[in-house]
Simulated assay, not measured.
Amino acid sequence: MGAPNRTPAEQGDALAEAIAVIRELHDTDAAGGVFLHHEHYPVRGAKRGPAPVQRPMPIWLGVLKPKGLRLVGSAADGWLPSFGRLEHGADSLDAGHAVVDDAARAVGREPRDIRRLLNVGPRDARPDTLADLATEHGVDTFVVVGDDEGLLAELGERIAPEVRAIVAERRAQRGVRAG
Rank of each mutant, 00 (worst) to 15 (best):
T28M: 00
T28I: 06
D29Q: 09
A30V: 01
A30Y: 01
A30Q: 08
A31E: 12
A31I: 02
A31Q: 13
G32P: 00
G33T: 03
G33R: 03
V34Y: 04
V34S: 06
V34C: 06
F35M: 02
F35G: 00
L36Q: 08
H37W: 10
H38W: 03
H38Q: 11
E39H: 10
E39R: 14
E39F: 00
H40M: 01
H40S: 01
H40C: 00
H40T: 00
P42V: 05
V43L: 02
V43Q: 04
V43A: 03
V43K: 04
R44C: 10
G45E: 10
G45S: 06
R48S: 06
R48E: 05
G49H: 12
P50I: 05
P50C: 12
P50V: 09
P50T: 07
A51D: 02
A51T: 03
P52H: 03
Q54F: 06
Q54T: 11
Q54E: 10
Q54P: 03
R55W: 15
R55M: 13
R55H: 15
R55K: 15
R55G: 07
P56R: 08
P56C: 09
M57C: 15
P58C: 08
P58Q: 10
I59V: 15
I59R: 03
I59M: 08
I59H: 07
W60N: 12
L61M: 12
L61K: 08
G62H: 05
V63F: 11
L64I: 13
L64T: 14
K65W: 09
K65T: 09
K65D: 09
P66T: 01
K67R: 14
K67M: 08
K67I: 08
